[in-house]
């Protein structure tokens, strides 16, 4: 390409009125070795762009549904917590009731046992009379 044609294209390029094809022409011109000396100053612009096209995204694409999992994990955690509080409360209530019942049963048993004890005491006293009877009987036998 002649340098005067390049100059015209450059003028259009800086006015942003070049077409994509014309811009490609400019890039090809500036990527070659023999660039007219007075145009050399523009070369880095076009070389830079040519280099910039070469950049690639090299990282592996990962489409793990990680994010979704986390979302559902929180839902599950909340559900578990709610169930825990609901049924946990129930459980604690049941425990308390059981304990109360146990205390009540203990008191009742104690009452019953003390009743038994007093009655037994009375019984023992009565048995003491029997002993008296036995002694009297022995005395009678001894007199004979």
């Amino acid at each position: 390409m002649e340098s005067d044609k390049v100059e015209k294209l450059l003028e259009k390029y800086f006015g942003a009125t070049t077409t994509v094809a014309e811009e490609q022409l400019l890039r090809t011109y500036f990527s070659q070795e023999s660039v007219a000396t007075h145009l050399e100053q523009y070369a880095p612009m076009f070389q830079y762009v040519t280099n910039a096209k070469e950049e690639r995204y090299t990282k592996q694409l990962v489409f793990s549904p990680r994010k979704k999992n986390y979302k559902w994990l929180s839902v599950a955690a909340v559900a578990a917590l709610v169930f825990g509080i609901y049924f946990g409360n129930d459980y604690v209530d049941k425990q308390r009731l059981e304990q109360e019942q146990a205390v009540y049963a203990y008191q009742e048993t104690k009452k019953a046992l003390s009743l038994l004890a007093t009655n037994l005491d009375r019984g023992i006293k009565k048995v003491a009379y029997l002993n008296e009877f036995e002694q009297a009987k022995q005395k009678i036998y001894n007199i004979k």
Binding site: F14, A16, Q41
Partner: peptide, 21 residues
């Protein structure tokens, strides 16, 4: 608007490059 922005960008590069040279 694109044309204006593009033209400005290209001219800025040209001027700054010229300064550097």
């Amino acid at each position: 608007a694109i044309r204006v922005a593009l033209s400005r960008a290209r001219k800025t590069i040209r001027e700054k490059l010229a300064q550097k040279h």
